Computed example of a mutant assay.
Amino acid sequence: MASLSFNEMWEKIMACDSSYDGLFYTAVKTTKIYCRPSCRSRKPKKVNVEFYATRVEALKAGFRACKRCQPDAGLSPQAELITRVKGFLVEHFKEPLTLQSVAQHAGVSPFYLERQFKEMTGETPRTYLEKVRLDKAVHLLTHTCLTNLEICYEAGFQSTSNFYKVFRTAKNCSPSEFRNIKEGT
C-alpha cells in the first residue's frame, strides 16, 4: 500500500478495480464501514475516506465489514498466495522483477505461481505487473509535469521502448498524445 498514493487508491475504488482487492481496504468515516476496492456500493465523499493496508487495521480503527462486498470473508490458500504476490508486485513495481524472483519471494516454484496466478486472475504475473506500471504511468501523466522519460522510469519500466509499446497497446496512443487528450489540447 505504501507505493500507492491516496489519489491512486481513490481512482481504484472509483473504478471498482478488483485487481487491487486484498491490497488495501477503504474505510468510510461516516458509516464506520470498510470495503474492498471493488465494492459496488455507493461511493462516499472523498473527505470521508481512509485507507488501510489490512482488515485488522480497519477493525482496530473501529470499522466494521461491509455486508455487500464482505471483505472479512476468508480466502482460500491459493487466493491468499495470489493476494500476497499482487501486494509484492505493487510494492516492488519499480524493481526489475523476474518470475523466478517473485516465485522465490512467495515460496513456490515459478511454474506453480504462473499457473495459479493465471487461473485466479486470468493474467500472468508479468501482465499484472505491466498493468500496475501502466496505472502508475497514467497517474503520473495526468497529475504531474514529469517528462515521458522520467515517467517511464518512475513507473518501473526498464526501457523506453517497452514503456511506449505497452502504453500504445493498452491506450491506443502514445504517452504524449494521452497527456494532450487529458489536458484537452
Results as ranks from 00 to 15, higher is better:
3 S>L: 05
119 E>H: 10
130 E>N: 07
102 V>T: 13
180 N>E: 07
162 N>R: 14
31 T>R: 03
142 T>R: 13
43 K>L: 14
173 C>N: 06
111 F>H: 14
75 L>S: 11
44 P>R: 04
172 N>S: 10
156 G>A: 03
24 F>V: 02
175 P>F: 02
161 S>T: 11
128 Y>K: 00
72 D>R: 06
161 S>P: 00
36 R>F: 12
34 Y>L: 01
84 R>S: 07
118 K>T: 15
150 E>H: 04
78 Q>N: 09
72 D>K: 13
152 C>Y: 04
16 C>I: 12
154 E>Q: 10
182 K>Q: 11
88 F>C: 00
70 Q>E: 12
126 R>Y: 15
72 D>H: 14
13 I>V: 13
11 E>T: 02
28 V>T: 12
79 A>S: 14
19 S>E: 13
49 V>A: 06
160 T>P: 00
65 A>Q: 06
96 P>E: 09
96 P>M: 05
31 T>I: 12
152 C>V: 12
92 H>M: 05
158 Q>M: 09
60 K>T: 15
146 L>H: 11
111 F>R: 15
173 C>Q: 13
152 C>F: 07
98 T>W: 14
91 E>P: 00
145 C>L: 11
88 F>W: 12
13 I>G: 01
124 T>V: 03
80 E>S: 06
153 Y>F: 15
35 C>P: 03
101 S>F: 02
151 I>C: 08
60 K>P: 02
126 R>A: 11
